[in-house]
């Protein structure tokens, strides 16, 4: 049975096989540098994303993390979930801290004070720590060209403090500081285009990923970590608490975010856009939104409006990749 299943599909045309390569299962390391037993919520796709990220990064890494869910769940004294060197200092300064680590290692290696190990410096932050309060430090570090990887784990609101809106919260989502009410649909602004902002810094490698596509995520993180210079990976992380979705559906909801075109998977390598997944036909956004309490209040008209915007944005992105 097992042997046969590997062969299944090998007779399909190459074009079709390429389209589904993203789902191809491969062996990965069983080593967990983000240890199990951390305090994340049931169904937390962000913890899954961090776990996969750590598998892709390996052991030769130093992680600087912003204040946020992943910091809180992984570092409560006297315990730690980290099998690799890890530092947390503040909320908004993670890219700057990473800059300092990189510069420190660079100088000490050059002076022969420590062995040259090509250790990768990785900054990790949530969407608030990236798109809002940490944007300046991130822009500075990208512009200065530090050799580091920045990963944004985007769960689309300040989940750690109780689901307040961020600039990364999508249009129409109800949060505790953008609540839906008699005269409001909830979040009234569209999600901030972090990828566009990062792309404007002309760094060598940028990608989006989602733990619902684990091999794609690990490939991108590994690729980003191999880049000499700044790299940025933006990972959509389903949050059952904040999105008010069933915890057992986190992986499916992540899939739907991609399949509806709401969160397209792509790379920008040296300015060149490349879609990671070819989607001949997008699923309706309703399929994604209906599973989440944060969108439950939206009228058909609003959903139509969202559908229109998602389709347009997706087509624009595809055009960039094809252009």
């Amino acid at each position: 049975m097992g042997k046969k299943s590997i062969d299944v599909g090998l007779d399909l045309p190459l074009k079709i096989r390429a389209r589904h390569a993203i789902h191809e299962v491969r062996p990965v390391t069983i080593k967990e540098n983000f240890a199990p037993g951390n305090r994340s919520c049931i169904g937390c796709a962000e913890a899954l994303a961090v776990r996969l990220t750590c598998k892709a990064l390996g052991d030769n890494v130093i992680i600087a993390m912003a204040t946020g869910c992943m910091e809180i769940v992984s570092s409560q004294l006297p315990y730690t979930s980290w099998e690799v060197p890890w530092i947390h200092t503040l909320f908004e300064n993670t890219a700057a801290v990473a800059s300092g680590i990189e510069a420190g290692l660079e100088a000490m290696v050059r002076k022969g004070r420590i062995p040259a190990r090509e250790t990768k410096i990785v900054a990790m932050a949530g969407d608030g720590g990236t798109a809002d309060i940490g944007l300046q430090a991130l822009s500075g570090a990208l512009e200065r060209g530090h050799n580091f990887l920045y990963i944004c784990f985007d769960n689309e609101a300040y989940m750690n403090t109780g689901v307040q809106r961020s600039s990364s919260t999508p249009y129409g989502a109800s949060t505790t500081t953008s609540p839906a009410g008699k005269v409001s649909i909830g979040q009234i602004t569209p999600k901030k285009d972090m990828l566009g902002i990062v792309a404007a810094h002309n760094i060598p490698y940028i990608a989006t990923a989602c733990p619902s596509y684990p091999f794609d995520l690990m490939d991108k993180v590994a690729k980003a970590a191999a880049v000499k210079g700044p790299a940025y990976v933006h990972i959509l992380s389903v949050c059952p608490v904040g999105w008010r979705s069933p915890s057992e559906l986190s992986v499916r909801i992540g899939r739907l975010a991609v399949e509806t075109g709401i969160f397209p998977l792509y790379e920008i390598e040296n300015g060149k856009y490349k879609m990671s997944l070819s989607l001949p036909k997008l699923k309706p956004v309703y399929d994604y939104m209906r599973l989440q309490g944060r969108f439950r209040h939206l009228s058909e008209d609003t959903i139509k409006q969202i559908q229109q915007r998602v389709t347009e944005e997706y087509q624009k992105l595809v055009a960039k990749a094809e252009g």
Binding site: I62, N93, A98, G100, I101, G104
Partner: peptide, 11 residues
């Protein structure tokens, strides 16, 4: 903040 990172790296 960058100084924090550098000092933590031992620089």
């Amino acid at each position: 903040s960058a100084c924090l990172g550098a000092a933590a790296a031992g620089a």
